[in-house]
Nucleic acid binder design. Sequence first.
DNA 1: GGCGCTACTACACATATGTATAGTGAAGTA
DNA 2: TACTTCACTATACATATGTGTAGTAGCGCC
Lengths: 218, 218
Amino acid sequence: MARIEADLEDLTARARIRDAALRQIGEHGFERATIRGIAEAAGVSSGLVRHHFGSKQALREACDDYLLKEIRRLGDETRVDLTPADVNPVGSALTAFGPYQRYLARALAEGWAAPLFDEMVRVYEEWLEEVDKARPDPPYASRRARATVATAMSLVVPVLYQHVSRGLGVDLATREGAHLLALTLLDIHSHPVLTPETAASLREALEKIHDVTPPPRS
Amino acid sequence: MARIEADLEDLTARARIRDAALRQIGEHGFERATIRGIAEAAGVSSGLVRHHFGSKQALREACDDYLLKEIRRLGDETRVDLTPADVNPVGSALTAFGPYQRYLARALAEGWAAPLFDEMVRVYEEWLEEVDKARPDPPYASRRARATVATAMSLVVPVLYQHVSRGLGVDLATREGAHLLALTLLDIHSHPVLTPETAASLREALEKIHDVTPPPRS
DNA sequence: GGCGCTACTACACATATGTATAGTGAAGTA
DNA sequence: TACTTCACTATACATATGTGTAGTAGCGCC
């Protein structure tokens, strides 16, 4: 999958502001990122930000729209191709976000950018549809549900970026970090914590609880 | 695992402030939560917040310390016992956080509370140590690395709470939501996306790339 | 040339918010 | 009683920040 455009320094001012906003918000979060800081990073006056986008909220929405459009465009032209490092479509979509991963992480963690998440779920769902064909037993949950949770799990690396980096003892942005992460993911994804049998028995227990137990609080 | 104390309304003022802070920050995030809002929620003046905690930062740190101490205490007295809904120790630790899950999620997503994360990794690591005994093949990555990534994956549900809820079509806080999530997790954890064979071949490819490729940028 | 439009800047404004200070009353103590 | 301490309130202060306004320069067009 290709990359979302990154570092043309001779963009239109409007585009430079958007780019600066994506980076600033990604680095500091929406609240702590300031109009003035974004303007400075873009090399324009703070008034120009308002001129082009109207308000801080609107600027954020413009960023969301941009990423959503870009990710859809990339998804359409280049068909998803999996690299070894990315064992699922969301993983590979993530690499496409390039320098804007931080923004995506903030957006999701802070609760907006729902369409971006939903789009990723959609892609994952399509991918699951293929995978399910080779699956003999009926799933425990709908494809949508599985795609949602799996998508969330794939997003955990950028969202909890620094914690994971700290835990691995190496920055994930480095080659070493990415390599170690890939190995770890391979191991986890190929070694399920549950055997089909224990899963089945747990499920049975779960269903029993769910059916029998009355609502906990009166 | 027991629950962290929740709703005694006749606490000391200091404790009520801390509790209010945990909830307010959990709901709005650290930046948007205000001293005045926390004070009002606790039924005290904003000045008292400063009197007891000194600053907003210090208040946050007091919240972190409290949760860390509580989670350690619970982990010590009651030994981790897995419920069907929680297929790993972090999952069950999460339920112990009860009303403070939102705070934990904010803390992790916004980048602080590293000790809380690390403590959870530690617990997961101990658990993995047991699990590894039954494992024939050598892991691809250190126990610490696997524990870190797996912990992060377990934490993604509260962090991306509303996105997952939206995707599942039901609020995760409800019985229905929790049940559906548990089923979905069971399915995912018992159906690896990779077979050991494909994982091995992917790993081989990965190692080759890692060894051969020169650093991408000169 | 004159007109209008648009990108852009400088600056003023209102306010939310963290922080600081002064004061009050109650409880404990010598 | 006199003094100290401490939990607690009311209020003031400084400032960061989103927003609004007025003005300028360049450019195309009639």
